[in-house]
Computed example of a mutant assay.
Amino acid sequence: RRGWVLPAIYPLSKDYSMEESSSEMDLLRLFPYWLDTNQGNAILNDVNMRSLFILTGPNGGGKSSMLRSVCAAALLGVCGLMVPAASAVIPHFDSIMLHMKAYDSPADGKSSFQIEMSEIRSLVSRATGRSLVLIDEICRGTETAKGTCIAGSIIERLDDVGCLGIVSTHLHGIFDLPLSLNNTDFKAMGAEVVNGCIQPTWRLMDGICRESLAFQTARKEGMPDLIIKRAEELYLTMSRSNKQTSSTAHHGPSVGYSNVNGLVGMPDSLGNMFEPPSGTFGLLRKDVESIVTAICKDKLLDLYNKRSISELVEVVCVTVGAREQPPPSTVGRSSIYIIIRRDNKLYVGQVFPRLLHIHVFFCFFV
């Protein structure tokens, strides 16, 4: 492979090379350049970029830090300077374009969304197959529905160009759009349960995370508990309403099912996802959910009457697409997983580390 290596001059890069013709970027043990790895407060990530990434993750999960770190590594590498990674293979990009947060400009009479659209328009119109494109929190300055569609269209355009890059978002409705994508992968920033609370791991992983941790973040920042509780009530009401609307609006096979945790099965157009074979699939899933929930509640009631548990346990059903990660709130919880196959046969398993909550997973596989 053509390139040049300068390990002696750049001590943080044991094997740094500039690829003249490669369309791939590999960053081994990449870390945020503003943190000191010797103090142990930097999380090291391996970034193997072969395509565009759609990046999801909880609030404070490290999405923006990942974009900044990748951008800095690519820019420093192209300039022949030290790269904040143990090893780096960086293509010779013709352009590196980063869009973070847009602010309004009263002097120009433009809102923050107008500024964002102007900047992203410039970015999209100049991107080529040899560009690195990084967009943080795409289309967050306007109403959700139309912003989601604009974001989906932008992602389709970048996918068609074939550039490398990352588009981070909390607009999870993007995964429900009938997008045509051939050069896009789905990545997420991980999370785990620590002392009963969900905490980001700041580690890059495959899949999709649809849980935002908005309520937990607002509570942590001092938002009055009365407001948070009311917000949770409103969210549950909205989720139930959306679920009822979805079930009545779809007369044929459905591409996904909403629930209180915000996970939805992705459509087949986003990477060979599960496609129900017939219109009876929705009824099958609904029947299985009803039966499993009833069995769990009966068993839990029996344990409660025998005083084996101090209180009744909540049963929550969660739909998980073939390339999705379960929501962080399910980590370390008792779970029953049901794999619904294309031939409508079921595979059922269980994990019971803690009998506090039971999550029923409906996993779709081809």
Rank of each mutant, 00 (worst) to 15 (best):
G3L: 05
M18V: 13
S23N: 07
D26S: 09
L28D: 11
L30V: 06
Y33F: 13
N45Y: 04
D46P: 04
V47L: 06
R50W: 03
S51V: 00
S51N: 04
L52T: 00
F53P: 01
L55Y: 04
N59K: 05
G61Q: 04
S65V: 15
L67K: 14
S69H: 09
V70D: 07
L75H: 13
L81T: 12
L81G: 13
M82S: 15
P84L: 14
P84S: 15
P91F: 05
P91G: 05
H92V: 04
F93H: 02
D94H: 01
S95E: 02
S95R: 01
A102G: 06
Y103L: 15
D104I: 02
K110F: 10
I115R: 14
S118N: 14
E119W: 03
S122R: 04
S125M: 07
L134A: 06
I138G: 08
C139Y: 11
C139I: 15
C149M: 11
A151N: 04
S153W: 00
I154V: 05
E156D: 01
D159P: 00
V167D: 01
S168T: 10
H172D: 15
I174K: 02
D176W: 02
D176A: 14
P178S: 05
P178Y: 01
S180G: 01
K187G: 05
A188P: 08
G190H: 14
C197L: 07
W202V: 12
W202C: 15
R203Q: 10
C209E: 15
R210F: 10
S212Y: 10
A214F: 10
T217F: 06
M223W: 07
I228Q: 04
A231G: 05
T248R: 12
T248V: 12
V255Q: 04
S258F: 10
G262H: 06
G265D: 05
S269H: 01
L270H: 00
M273D: 03
F274Y: 06
G279D: 10
T280C: 15
L283S: 12
R285A: 13
D287I: 08
V288T: 05
S290P: 04
V292E: 07
I295A: 12
K306T: 02
R307I: 07
S310R: 13
L312D: 05
V313C: 12
V316D: 10
G321P: 09
R323C: 07
P327H: 11
V331E: 15
R333K: 14
S334T: 13
S335D: 11
I336E: 10
I339G: 12
I339A: 15
R342N: 13
K345F: 07
L346N: 02
F352M: 02
L356P: 01
I358Q: 03
H359D: 11
F361A: 03
